[in-house]
Amino acid sequence: MELLVCIKQVPDAKDVRLDPRTNTLAREGVESIMNPFDRHALEEAVRLKEAHGGTVTALSMGPPQAEAVLREAIACGADRGVLVSDRAFAGADTWATSYTLARAIDTIGSFDLILCGKQAIDGDTAQVGPGLAARMNLPYVTCVQKTRDVVDGGIEVERMMDDGYDVVRLPLPALLTVVKDINEPRVPSLKGKMKARKADIPVLSAADIGAEEACIGLAGSPTRVVNVFSPEPRGDRKIFTGTAEEQVDQLIEHLRDFL
């Protein structure tokens, strides 16, 4: 089974804070990490490989330093990593990103199953996975919480819904996006780390994947960010003082309507 996992390098959101004085993002000490959802997609791919044989390719689109997440992917069980990187990709929205990834996948091989994290924690759009499936004309299911079985050229999965789940069967090749419940990702192994250290990570440019200029980067993006601002604080707040008991009494006084 030839598997491909799409992986994004993102800033570790839990470290990111808004500086209350300057109202800007405090970036100090924010590390770049593998998008947590993608880690689960990778783990699922590696488990499928262990159960059914085949190879796992990790693909990332990003700046040159995104190579780090591909090495990490190899340490976690991927067989190889491929980076798609070009200044011309900068400013890509999800439309241009799914185009670029689809071109890159066409360039590097053919795959039975493509796995993506449900969404990336920096953008939280959850649009690239379905978009990529549409580009590649693959059947897909989003928010997969469990892969049940791979039989007769198809895969049976549980798709998380707002109120429960659906059991869905789709033929391969196909694309899945996964939620965190699907598995517990492993810690990179020692042998994997040694392999990752030595691995050759090819870098594909826009020209290498035969991308049309009008479809990539900012130029290829139908959406434009026109304004960026900080969420407003609540105006009418009241911070109580005194002992715990005094504060609780004041609160109860103010909350009478609810009690």
Binding site: R186, V187, P188, S189, L190, K191, G192
Partner: peptide
Amino acid sequence: EDIARADLFGI
């Protein structure tokens, strides 16, 4: 099992 998967038992 996690320790095993990380190859630590082999050191």
